[in-house]
Design a protein around this nucleic acid. Structure first.
Lengths: 120, 120
DNA sequence: ATTAGGAATAGGAACCATTCCTAATATATT
DNA sequence: AATATATTAGGAATGGTTCCTATTCCTAAT
């Protein structure tokens, strides 16, 4: 693992939220000022493809990367764009019971208004 | 409603599947050979925004448009890319019971292998 | 320490789906 | 029919991501 790769992995690992590639780039530049966006993307994708981090893809917004590998779902605040993790227990089983074919994987996106935005 | 708008709406209305803007363009051109992609997009979005058709957005693929306005979910064949409608009954209620905030809307994406691809 | 070979990188071009811009055209109103 | 308003065609612009390639970095063997 190169120093840049280690930095990128470290940045994700110590974040408890969801970072875009641009955000990871900005943070990586604090340590490696010349790092490029393509390098960030390449390595984030390598980590995601090998299961070291999780990539969340959404239509109309940039991908997010997070360290949380436990199965969970995502809620998206329609006002500020923030993403919150949550877990609907037994959702996989519930879906499997109601769908006639084997489910390879699934993605649930919930739109809501986060508490911070609600209090405005 | 202009003639072009009527054609676009008619094309979606008589399709029982999921069409991309490019597919709608090709079909519209059979009637209005000079129609442009931007016109197709603009009108599909107008129809979607006013609830006349439904737009399905996915990461990494073009948007799909369909006439089916009844609430339902979508399964995506990872081999051929086809989309199938299905309905998980009471999913909204199930999610609401397990999520602490009001759910504005949600989107469920199931990845599977469609019967046609399985038989290969 | 030096160097050869392979892997990783920086930078920018390319890509794709979509939106935006604007002059020209069609439609609606009087 | 004349004028006002809305829509269109066509292409440029956009945003996120991937691809390309010359250069740089590492590693391990000399």
């Amino acid at each position: 693992m190169t120093k840049i790769q280690a930095s990128i992995f470290h940045i994700i690992s110590q974040s408890d939220g969801h970072l875009t590639a641009e955000q990871v780039l900005a943070l990586t530049k604090q340590i490696h000022p010349t790092v490029s966006l393509s390098t960030v993307y390449r390595n984030l994708n390598i980590f995601a493809d090998t299961g070291k981090i999780r990539r969340i893809q959404r239509p109309t917004s940039a991908d997010y990367y997070e360290r949380n590998l436990l199965p969970h779902d995502h809620a998206y605040c329609v006002q500020c764009g923030s993403i919150a993790d949550f877990k609907i227990s037994h959702l996989k089983e519930y879906l499997a019971q109601n769908f006639e074919h084997p489910i390879l994987s699934f993605e649930l996106l919930v739109n809501y208004v986060c508490p911070a935005c609600k209090n405005k």
